[in-house]
Write a protein that binds this DNA or RNA. Structure first.
Length: 424
RNA sequence: GGAGGAGUGGCCGAGUGGUUUAAGGCGACGGUCUUGAAAACCGUUGAACCGUAAGGUUCCGGGGGUUCGAAUCCCUCCUCCUCCGCCA
Protein backbone atom coordinates (compact mmCIF):
# COMPACT_ATOMS: atom_id res chain seq x y z
CA UNK A 1 0.00 0.00 0.00
CA UNK A 2 1.35 3.34 -0.99
CA UNK A 3 0.87 6.62 0.87
CA UNK A 4 -2.19 8.33 -0.58
CA UNK A 5 -0.93 11.70 0.68
CA UNK A 6 2.29 11.30 -1.26
CA UNK A 7 0.27 10.33 -4.30
CA UNK A 8 -1.76 13.53 -4.00
CA UNK A 9 1.39 15.60 -3.73
CA UNK A 10 3.47 13.91 -6.43
CA UNK A 11 1.27 11.99 -8.84
CA UNK A 12 3.99 12.07 -11.49
CA UNK A 13 6.21 9.91 -9.30
CA UNK A 14 3.54 7.23 -9.30
CA UNK A 15 2.78 7.50 -12.98
CA UNK A 16 6.47 6.89 -13.59
CA UNK A 17 6.40 3.89 -11.26
CA UNK A 18 3.44 2.39 -13.14
CA UNK A 19 5.29 2.86 -16.40
CA UNK A 20 8.62 1.51 -15.15
CA UNK A 21 7.07 -1.52 -13.52
CA UNK A 22 4.69 -2.18 -16.36
CA UNK A 23 1.81 -2.57 -13.96
CA UNK A 24 -0.48 -0.49 -11.85
CA UNK A 25 -3.56 1.59 -12.30
CA UNK A 26 -4.94 4.80 -13.72
CA UNK A 27 -3.46 7.44 -11.42
CA UNK A 28 -5.83 10.20 -12.55
CA UNK A 29 -8.84 7.99 -11.95
CA UNK A 30 -7.54 7.18 -8.50
CA UNK A 31 -7.06 10.87 -7.70
CA UNK A 32 -10.53 11.67 -8.97
CA UNK A 33 -12.13 9.02 -6.74
CA UNK A 34 -9.97 10.12 -3.84
CA UNK A 35 -11.08 13.74 -4.19
CA UNK A 36 -14.73 12.71 -4.30
CA UNK A 37 -14.26 10.50 -1.31
CA UNK A 38 -12.67 13.32 0.69
CA UNK A 39 -15.56 15.61 -0.23
CA UNK A 40 -18.09 13.02 0.93
CA UNK A 41 -16.25 12.42 4.18
CA UNK A 42 -16.22 16.14 4.88
CA UNK A 43 -19.96 16.38 4.38
CA UNK A 44 -20.55 13.30 6.52
CA UNK A 45 -18.47 14.83 9.25
CA UNK A 46 -20.63 17.95 9.28
CA UNK A 47 -23.75 15.83 9.54
CA UNK A 48 -22.25 13.82 12.38
CA UNK A 49 -21.45 17.03 14.23
CA UNK A 50 -25.02 18.24 14.00
CA UNK A 51 -26.37 14.82 14.95
CA UNK A 52 -24.20 14.73 18.04
CA UNK A 53 -25.32 18.19 19.10
CA UNK A 54 -28.97 17.52 18.44
CA UNK A 55 -28.85 14.19 20.25
CA UNK A 56 -27.40 15.79 23.34
CA UNK A 57 -29.94 18.60 23.22
CA UNK A 58 -32.85 16.14 23.10
CA UNK A 59 -31.81 14.62 26.39
CA UNK A 60 -32.29 18.00 28.08
CA UNK A 61 -35.50 19.09 26.35
CA UNK A 62 -38.64 19.26 28.44
CA UNK A 63 -40.96 20.77 25.84
CA UNK A 64 -42.64 18.03 23.79
CA UNK A 65 -43.04 20.07 20.57
CA UNK A 66 -39.46 21.17 20.64
CA UNK A 67 -38.46 17.61 21.22
CA UNK A 68 -40.51 16.29 18.30
CA UNK A 69 -38.98 18.93 16.06
CA UNK A 70 -35.50 17.88 17.06
CA UNK A 71 -36.30 14.23 16.46
CA UNK A 72 -37.60 15.11 13.01
CA UNK A 73 -34.42 17.02 12.28
CA UNK A 74 -32.49 13.91 13.28
CA UNK A 75 -34.49 11.90 10.76
CA UNK A 76 -33.58 14.39 8.02
CA UNK A 77 -29.94 14.21 8.95
CA UNK A 78 -30.05 10.44 8.90
CA UNK A 79 -31.50 10.46 5.40
CA UNK A 80 -28.78 12.76 4.16
CA UNK A 81 -26.22 10.61 5.91
CA UNK A 82 -27.60 7.48 4.30
CA UNK A 83 -27.31 8.92 0.80
CA UNK A 84 -23.72 9.96 1.36
CA UNK A 85 -22.81 6.71 3.08
CA UNK A 86 -24.21 4.74 0.16
CA UNK A 87 -22.03 6.64 -2.24
CA UNK A 88 -18.98 6.10 -0.04
CA UNK A 89 -19.80 2.40 0.20
CA UNK A 90 -19.80 2.25 -3.57
CA UNK A 91 -16.67 4.35 -3.96
CA UNK A 92 -14.52 2.86 -1.25
CA UNK A 93 -13.99 -0.65 -2.67
CA UNK A 94 -13.02 0.87 -6.03
CA UNK A 95 -10.59 3.23 -4.39
CA UNK A 96 -9.18 0.48 -2.19
CA UNK A 97 -8.72 -1.79 -5.19
CA UNK A 98 -6.83 0.92 -7.06
CA UNK A 99 -4.69 1.69 -4.02
CA UNK A 100 -3.85 -1.97 -3.45
CA UNK A 101 -2.61 -2.22 -7.01
CA UNK A 102 -0.64 1.00 -7.08
CA UNK A 103 3.06 0.14 -7.32
CA UNK A 104 5.73 1.52 -5.01
CA UNK A 105 8.13 3.97 -6.70
CA UNK A 106 11.62 2.52 -6.87
CA UNK A 107 15.08 3.41 -5.57
CA UNK A 108 16.71 6.08 -7.80
CA UNK A 109 19.58 3.72 -8.62
CA UNK A 110 17.38 0.77 -9.52
CA UNK A 111 17.90 -0.21 -13.15
CA UNK A 112 14.98 0.58 -15.42
CA UNK A 113 13.98 -2.23 -17.74
CA UNK A 114 10.97 -4.04 -19.16
CA UNK A 115 11.63 -7.56 -17.83
CA UNK A 116 14.41 -9.87 -16.64
CA UNK A 117 16.51 -8.83 -19.62
CA UNK A 118 17.04 -5.49 -17.89
CA UNK A 119 18.52 -6.97 -14.73
CA UNK A 120 22.06 -5.91 -14.01
CA UNK A 121 24.83 -8.21 -12.82
CA UNK A 122 26.48 -6.61 -9.82
CA UNK A 123 29.22 -9.16 -9.08
CA UNK A 124 30.27 -12.76 -9.40
CA UNK A 125 31.88 -14.99 -6.82
CA UNK A 126 33.59 -18.36 -7.21
CA UNK A 127 34.80 -20.27 -10.19
CA UNK A 128 32.50 -22.51 -12.16
CA UNK A 129 33.93 -25.99 -12.13
CA UNK A 130 35.15 -27.48 -15.40
CA UNK A 131 34.52 -31.18 -15.51
CA UNK A 132 37.01 -33.63 -17.00
CA UNK A 133 34.18 -36.14 -17.34
CA UNK A 134 30.56 -35.97 -18.45
CA UNK A 135 28.70 -34.56 -15.42
CA UNK A 136 25.33 -35.99 -14.46
CA UNK A 137 22.31 -33.94 -13.41
CA UNK A 138 21.06 -34.00 -9.83
CA UNK A 139 18.19 -36.36 -10.56
CA UNK A 140 20.40 -38.94 -12.21
CA UNK A 141 22.93 -38.60 -9.42
CA UNK A 142 20.33 -38.65 -6.68
CA UNK A 143 18.36 -41.56 -8.12
CA UNK A 144 21.52 -43.66 -8.62
CA UNK A 145 22.65 -42.94 -5.07
CA UNK A 146 19.17 -43.64 -3.70
CA UNK A 147 18.88 -40.24 -2.05
CA UNK A 148 16.22 -38.65 -4.30
CA UNK A 149 12.95 -40.35 -5.30
CA UNK A 150 10.83 -38.42 -7.76
CA UNK A 151 8.56 -41.30 -8.81
CA UNK A 152 7.19 -42.05 -5.39
CA UNK A 153 6.78 -38.36 -4.66
CA UNK A 154 4.58 -38.08 -7.74
CA UNK A 155 2.77 -41.30 -6.86
CA UNK A 156 1.65 -39.87 -3.54
CA UNK A 157 1.19 -36.20 -4.34
CA UNK A 158 1.27 -35.59 -8.08
CA UNK A 159 3.61 -33.63 -10.28
CA UNK A 160 6.28 -31.42 -8.71
CA UNK A 161 6.47 -33.58 -5.61
CA UNK A 162 9.47 -35.61 -4.50
CA UNK A 163 11.09 -37.17 -1.55
CA UNK A 164 14.58 -37.21 -0.15
CA UNK A 165 16.02 -40.30 1.49
CA UNK A 166 19.02 -41.21 3.57
CA UNK A 167 21.96 -38.91 2.93
CA UNK A 168 19.72 -36.81 0.68
CA UNK A 169 17.43 -36.04 3.58
CA UNK A 170 20.46 -35.43 5.77
CA UNK A 171 22.08 -33.12 3.24
CA UNK A 172 18.86 -31.13 3.02
CA UNK A 173 18.74 -30.77 6.80
CA UNK A 174 22.45 -30.00 6.96
CA UNK A 175 22.18 -26.97 4.67
CA UNK A 176 19.21 -25.65 6.60
CA UNK A 177 20.88 -26.15 9.95
CA UNK A 178 24.08 -24.46 8.86
CA UNK A 179 22.12 -21.51 7.50
CA UNK A 180 20.01 -21.22 10.59
CA UNK A 181 22.97 -21.39 12.97
CA UNK A 182 24.87 -18.78 10.99
CA UNK A 183 21.99 -16.36 11.23
CA UNK A 184 21.52 -16.92 14.95
CA UNK A 185 25.26 -16.34 15.39
CA UNK A 186 24.81 -13.00 13.61
CA UNK A 187 22.27 -11.94 16.18
CA UNK A 188 19.04 -12.71 14.36
CA UNK A 189 16.27 -13.90 16.63
CA UNK A 190 15.09 -17.39 15.67
CA UNK A 191 11.37 -17.90 15.28
CA UNK A 192 9.20 -20.85 14.54
CA UNK A 193 6.06 -19.55 12.91
CA UNK A 194 2.71 -20.87 11.70
CA UNK A 195 2.70 -21.93 8.07
CA UNK A 196 -1.11 -21.86 7.94
CA UNK A 197 -2.14 -18.24 8.33
CA UNK A 198 -5.09 -15.95 7.81
CA UNK A 199 -5.89 -13.98 4.72
CA UNK A 200 -4.91 -10.69 6.34
CA UNK A 201 -1.28 -11.82 6.61
CA UNK A 202 -1.23 -12.42 2.86
CA UNK A 203 -2.93 -9.13 2.10
CA UNK A 204 -0.64 -7.37 4.52
CA UNK A 205 2.57 -8.70 3.04
CA UNK A 206 1.39 -8.03 -0.51
CA UNK A 207 0.99 -11.67 -1.54
CA UNK A 208 -2.69 -11.04 -2.07
CA UNK A 209 -4.46 -10.07 -4.19
CA UNK A 210 -1.87 -10.51 -6.98
CA UNK A 211 -0.44 -13.85 -5.95
CA UNK A 212 -3.59 -15.54 -4.75
CA UNK A 213 -3.47 -18.25 -7.38
CA UNK A 214 -0.02 -19.31 -6.14
CA UNK A 215 -1.29 -20.14 -2.68
CA UNK A 216 -2.90 -23.31 -1.32
CA UNK A 217 -6.15 -22.65 0.49
CA UNK A 218 -7.77 -24.47 3.36
CA UNK A 219 -11.27 -23.05 2.83
CA UNK A 220 -12.92 -24.97 5.62
CA UNK A 221 -10.83 -23.09 8.15
CA UNK A 222 -10.28 -19.94 6.08
CA UNK A 223 -6.53 -20.41 6.25
CA UNK A 224 -3.80 -20.46 3.64
CA UNK A 225 -0.47 -22.28 3.41
CA UNK A 226 2.41 -19.83 3.25
CA UNK A 227 4.79 -19.80 0.32
CA UNK A 228 7.49 -18.32 2.54
CA UNK A 229 8.05 -17.55 6.21
CA UNK A 230 8.19 -13.91 5.12
CA UNK A 231 4.39 -13.89 5.45
CA UNK A 232 4.07 -14.86 9.12
CA UNK A 233 7.35 -13.25 10.21
CA UNK A 234 6.58 -9.85 8.69
CA UNK A 235 3.00 -10.08 9.97
CA UNK A 236 4.19 -10.85 13.49
CA UNK A 237 3.81 -7.27 14.68
CA UNK A 238 0.85 -6.24 12.55
CA UNK A 239 -1.46 -3.74 14.24
CA UNK A 240 1.25 -2.94 16.75
CA UNK A 241 3.14 0.21 17.60
CA UNK A 242 6.71 -0.74 18.49
CA UNK A 243 9.23 1.36 20.38
CA UNK A 244 11.99 2.80 18.24
CA UNK A 245 14.42 1.52 20.89
CA UNK A 246 13.36 -2.05 20.01
CA UNK A 247 14.24 -1.59 16.33
CA UNK A 248 15.57 -3.07 14.20
CA UNK A 249 13.87 -6.40 14.66
CA UNK A 250 16.07 -9.02 13.04
CA UNK A 251 14.35 -12.36 12.63
CA UNK A 252 15.28 -15.68 11.12
CA UNK A 253 12.75 -18.44 10.60
CA UNK A 254 12.93 -21.84 9.02
CA UNK A 255 9.68 -23.06 7.58
CA UNK A 256 8.01 -25.28 5.08
CA UNK A 257 6.91 -23.37 2.00
CA UNK A 258 4.08 -24.31 -0.33
CA UNK A 259 3.53 -23.02 -3.84
CA UNK A 260 0.93 -24.07 -6.37
CA UNK A 261 3.05 -22.92 -9.31
CA UNK A 262 -0.14 -22.13 -11.21
CA UNK A 263 0.63 -20.77 -14.63
CA UNK A 264 4.03 -22.46 -14.64
CA UNK A 265 2.74 -25.56 -16.39
CA UNK A 266 5.47 -27.04 -18.52
CA UNK A 267 8.09 -24.72 -17.05
CA UNK A 268 11.02 -26.19 -15.13
CA UNK A 269 9.25 -29.52 -14.87
CA UNK A 270 12.46 -31.46 -14.46
CA UNK A 271 13.99 -32.17 -11.12
CA UNK A 272 14.02 -30.35 -7.84
CA UNK A 273 13.98 -26.82 -9.24
CA UNK A 274 10.31 -25.86 -9.24
CA UNK A 275 8.40 -27.92 -6.71
CA UNK A 276 5.27 -27.54 -4.61
CA UNK A 277 6.83 -27.98 -1.20
CA UNK A 278 10.23 -26.97 0.08
CA UNK A 279 11.95 -25.71 3.16
CA UNK A 280 13.51 -22.32 3.56
CA UNK A 281 15.48 -20.32 6.10
CA UNK A 282 14.34 -16.74 5.72
CA UNK A 283 15.69 -13.50 7.21
CA UNK A 284 13.42 -10.54 7.86
CA UNK A 285 14.36 -7.12 9.16
CA UNK A 286 11.90 -4.52 10.39
CA UNK A 287 13.59 -1.16 10.93
CA UNK A 288 12.74 2.48 11.38
CA UNK A 289 11.60 4.63 8.50
CA UNK A 290 14.96 5.93 7.35
CA UNK A 291 16.07 5.34 3.77
CA UNK A 292 19.78 5.23 4.57
CA UNK A 293 19.35 2.82 7.42
CA UNK A 294 17.06 0.61 5.35
CA UNK A 295 19.61 0.56 2.56
CA UNK A 296 22.30 -0.50 5.03
CA UNK A 297 20.21 -3.40 6.32
CA UNK A 298 19.23 -4.41 2.81
CA UNK A 299 22.90 -4.74 1.90
CA UNK A 300 23.43 -6.58 5.18
CA UNK A 301 20.86 -9.29 4.48
CA UNK A 302 22.27 -9.68 0.98
CA UNK A 303 25.74 -10.11 2.41
CA UNK A 304 24.53 -12.67 4.96
CA UNK A 305 23.34 -14.91 2.18
CA UNK A 306 26.47 -14.41 0.12
CA UNK A 307 28.56 -15.44 3.10
CA UNK A 308 26.65 -18.68 3.38
CA UNK A 309 27.16 -19.39 -0.32
CA UNK A 310 30.86 -18.77 0.19
CA UNK A 311 30.93 -21.21 3.09
CA UNK A 312 29.31 -23.76 0.80
CA UNK A 313 31.80 -22.78 -1.92
CA UNK A 314 29.10 -22.47 -4.53
CA UNK A 315 29.70 -20.09 -7.45
CA UNK A 316 27.06 -17.39 -7.67
CA UNK A 317 26.32 -14.00 -9.10
CA UNK A 318 24.35 -11.11 -7.71
CA UNK A 319 21.78 -9.43 -9.93
CA UNK A 320 20.14 -6.13 -9.27
CA UNK A 321 16.58 -6.59 -10.47
CA UNK A 322 15.21 -3.97 -12.84
CA UNK A 323 11.91 -2.14 -12.49
CA UNK A 324 9.96 -4.37 -14.86
CA UNK A 325 10.97 -7.54 -13.05
CA UNK A 326 10.74 -6.53 -9.39
CA UNK A 327 7.03 -6.49 -8.71
CA UNK A 328 4.86 -3.65 -7.53
CA UNK A 329 5.69 -3.93 -3.84
CA UNK A 330 9.45 -3.60 -4.11
CA UNK A 331 11.68 -0.57 -3.70
CA UNK A 332 14.92 -2.29 -4.49
CA UNK A 333 15.68 -5.94 -5.12
CA UNK A 334 18.62 -8.27 -5.63
CA UNK A 335 18.64 -11.91 -6.62
CA UNK A 336 21.46 -14.31 -5.99
CA UNK A 337 21.79 -16.85 -8.77
CA UNK A 338 23.82 -19.99 -8.25
CA UNK A 339 25.50 -21.90 -11.04
CA UNK A 340 23.68 -25.10 -11.94
CA UNK A 341 25.51 -27.32 -14.45
CA UNK A 342 22.39 -29.18 -15.61
CA UNK A 343 20.68 -25.90 -16.38
CA UNK A 344 23.83 -24.55 -17.99
CA UNK A 345 23.75 -21.27 -16.19
CA UNK A 346 23.08 -19.24 -13.11
CA UNK A 347 19.62 -19.74 -11.62
CA UNK A 348 17.77 -17.94 -8.88
CA UNK A 349 18.32 -19.29 -5.38
CA UNK A 350 17.82 -16.14 -3.30
CA UNK A 351 15.79 -12.97 -3.46
CA UNK A 352 16.51 -9.91 -1.32
CA UNK A 353 13.82 -7.26 -1.30
CA UNK A 354 13.52 -3.89 0.36
CA UNK A 355 9.83 -3.00 0.48
CA UNK A 356 10.07 0.26 2.44
CA UNK A 357 6.69 0.90 4.08
CA UNK A 358 4.66 -0.92 1.44
CA UNK A 359 3.97 -3.96 3.63
CA UNK A 360 3.92 -2.11 6.93
CA UNK A 361 1.16 0.22 5.74
CA UNK A 362 -0.96 -2.77 4.81
CA UNK A 363 -0.06 -4.52 8.04
CA UNK A 364 -0.50 -1.38 10.13
CA UNK A 365 2.94 -2.00 11.61
CA UNK A 366 4.33 1.15 13.19
CA UNK A 367 6.76 2.45 15.78
CA UNK A 368 6.98 5.41 18.11
CA UNK A 369 10.07 7.60 17.85
CA UNK A 370 11.84 9.57 20.59
CA UNK A 371 9.42 12.47 20.11
CA UNK A 372 6.53 10.05 20.56
CA UNK A 373 5.60 10.47 16.90
CA UNK A 374 4.25 7.39 15.14
CA UNK A 375 5.69 6.19 11.82
CA UNK A 376 5.37 3.15 9.62
CA UNK A 377 8.30 0.72 9.84
CA UNK A 378 10.32 -0.47 6.88
CA UNK A 379 10.42 -4.20 6.12
CA UNK A 380 12.79 -6.28 4.04
CA UNK A 381 13.60 -9.91 3.60
CA UNK A 382 15.99 -12.32 1.96
CA UNK A 383 16.39 -16.04 1.56
CA UNK A 384 19.21 -17.46 3.63
CA UNK A 385 18.85 -20.79 1.92
CA UNK A 386 16.05 -22.72 0.26
CA UNK A 387 16.28 -26.47 -0.08
CA UNK A 388 16.09 -28.71 -2.01
CA UNK A 389 16.67 -26.12 -4.77
CA UNK A 390 20.15 -25.43 -3.38
CA UNK A 391 20.84 -29.17 -3.56
CA UNK A 392 20.88 -28.90 -7.35
CA UNK A 393 24.18 -26.99 -7.54
CA UNK A 394 25.43 -28.73 -4.43
CA UNK A 395 25.02 -32.23 -5.84
CA UNK A 396 25.98 -31.38 -9.38
CA UNK A 397 29.08 -29.31 -8.62
CA UNK A 398 30.36 -31.69 -5.95
CA UNK A 399 29.87 -34.87 -8.00
CA UNK A 400 32.74 -37.18 -8.83
CA UNK A 401 33.38 -39.24 -11.96
CA UNK A 402 32.26 -42.41 -10.13
CA UNK A 403 28.86 -40.97 -9.37
CA UNK A 404 29.53 -40.20 -5.72
CA UNK A 405 29.13 -36.76 -4.16
CA UNK A 406 31.72 -35.06 -1.99
CA UNK A 407 30.12 -33.31 0.96
CA UNK A 408 31.19 -29.66 1.29
CA UNK A 409 33.45 -29.17 4.30
CA UNK A 410 31.04 -26.72 5.95
CA UNK A 411 28.27 -29.34 5.97
CA UNK A 412 30.25 -32.26 7.33
CA UNK A 413 29.65 -31.39 10.99
CA UNK A 414 25.93 -31.77 10.28
CA UNK A 415 26.42 -35.18 8.63
CA UNK A 416 28.32 -37.03 11.33
CA UNK A 417 31.62 -35.94 9.76
CA UNK A 418 30.90 -37.87 6.60
CA UNK A 419 32.91 -36.74 3.56
CA UNK A 420 31.18 -38.52 0.73
CA UNK A 421 27.77 -39.72 -0.34
CA UNK A 422 28.01 -43.16 -1.92
CA UNK A 423 25.49 -45.72 -3.07
CA UNK A 424 24.78 -48.63 -0.77
C1' G B 1 -16.19 -32.00 19.13
C1' G B 2 -19.69 -30.68 23.67
C1' A B 3 -21.06 -27.18 27.87
C1' G B 4 -20.32 -22.59 30.22
C1' G B 5 -17.77 -17.59 30.99
C1' A B 6 -15.29 -13.23 29.32
C1' G B 7 -13.17 -9.21 25.83
C1' U B 8 -13.08 -1.25 27.99
C1' G B 9 -6.78 3.07 26.93
C1' G B 10 0.58 0.78 27.77
C1' C B 11 -1.47 -2.41 32.13
C1' C B 12 -5.42 -3.18 35.99
C1' G B 13 -10.33 -1.75 36.35
C1' A B 14 -15.48 1.25 36.94
C1' G B 15 -19.29 1.97 33.71
C1' U B 16 -26.67 -2.06 32.12
C1' G B 17 -29.71 3.79 27.14
C1' G B 18 -28.63 10.67 27.59
C1' U B 19 -24.31 15.44 33.05
C1' U B 20 -18.95 10.00 30.16
C1' U B 21 -15.53 15.04 27.79
C1' A B 22 -14.60 6.57 29.29
C1' A B 23 -14.25 7.31 36.60
C1' G B 24 -10.30 5.50 39.62
C1' G B 25 -5.60 3.10 40.13
C1' C B 26 -0.73 1.40 38.27
C1' G B 27 3.14 2.40 34.99
C1' A B 28 5.71 6.07 32.00
C1' C B 29 7.22 11.17 31.09
C1' G B 30 7.80 16.43 32.76
C1' G B 31 7.94 19.84 36.94
C1' U B 32 8.33 21.46 42.33
C1' C B 33 11.39 20.09 46.45
C1' U B 34 16.69 17.95 47.05
C1' U B 35 23.97 18.16 46.89
C1' G B 36 21.91 13.82 44.16
C1' A B 37 18.12 10.20 44.57
C1' A B 38 13.74 8.28 46.87
C1' A B 39 9.17 9.86 48.94
C1' A B 40 5.46 13.55 48.57
C1' C B 41 2.85 17.03 45.65
C1' C B 42 1.44 19.22 40.71
C1' G B 43 0.94 18.37 35.60
C1' U B 44 1.16 15.42 31.02
C1' U B 45 0.13 10.68 29.14
C1' G B 46 -3.89 6.40 22.56
C1' A B 47 -4.57 6.13 17.22
C1' A B 48 -6.63 7.56 12.45
C1' C B 49 -8.94 11.22 9.40
C1' C B 50 -10.77 16.43 7.88
C1' G B 51 -9.20 21.58 8.62
C1' U B 52 -4.18 27.26 7.45
C1' A B 53 -6.15 27.47 12.33
C1' A B 54 -9.86 27.37 16.01
C1' G B 55 -11.92 23.12 16.05
C1' G B 56 -14.42 18.75 14.33
C1' U B 57 -15.17 13.36 13.21
C1' U B 58 -14.31 8.08 14.02
C1' C B 59 -12.53 4.08 17.20
C1' C B 60 -14.64 0.51 24.15
C1' G B 61 -12.37 -7.25 20.05
C1' G B 62 -14.39 -7.07 14.25
C1' G B 63 -18.86 -6.44 11.36
C1' G B 64 -24.16 -5.62 11.18
C1' G B 65 -28.83 -4.11 13.65
C1' U B 66 -32.50 -1.62 17.29
C1' U B 67 -33.06 3.68 19.02
C1' C B 68 -33.99 10.66 18.47
C1' G B 69 -29.46 8.87 21.17
C1' A B 70 -25.38 2.62 22.25
C1' A B 71 -19.21 0.98 25.72
C1' U B 72 -24.29 -0.27 27.60
C1' C B 73 -29.76 -3.76 24.14
C1' C B 74 -30.01 -7.58 19.78
C1' C B 75 -27.52 -10.67 15.77
C1' U B 76 -23.02 -12.54 13.90
C1' C B 77 -17.87 -13.46 13.53
C1' C B 78 -13.05 -13.44 16.01
C1' U B 79 -10.07 -14.10 20.37
C1' C B 80 -9.16 -15.73 25.28
C1' C B 81 -10.49 -18.55 29.85
C1' U B 82 -12.88 -22.90 32.64
C1' C B 83 -14.81 -27.94 32.50
C1' C B 84 -15.65 -32.57 29.55
C1' G B 85 -14.00 -35.56 25.25
C1' C B 86 -9.92 -36.62 21.85
C1' C B 87 -4.70 -36.23 21.03
C1' A B 88 1.64 -35.59 19.55
Amino acid sequence: MIDIKKLRETPELYKTACQQKGCGVDVDELLRLDARQLQLKRELQEIATEKNQTGKAIAKMKDADQRDQAIERMAQLKNQEKALTDEVAQLEPQLHELLLNMPLPVHPDAPVGPDESGNVEVRRWGKVREFDFEPKDHITLGTNLGIVDMERGVKMSGARNYLLKGDGALLHQAVLRLAHEQMVAKGFEPLTVPVLTREETFLGTGWFPEGRSQVYEVPRDELFLVGTAEVPVTSLHMNEILDEADLPKKYVAQSLCFRREAGAAGKDTYGLYRIHQFEKVEQVIVCKNDLDEAEKWHQHILQNSEELMQMLELPYRVLEICTGDMGMAKYRMYDIETYMPSRQGYCETHSASNLLDFQTRRLNLRYRDEDRKVHYCISMNNTVVASPRILIPLMELYQEADGTITIPVALRPYMQGKEKITAH
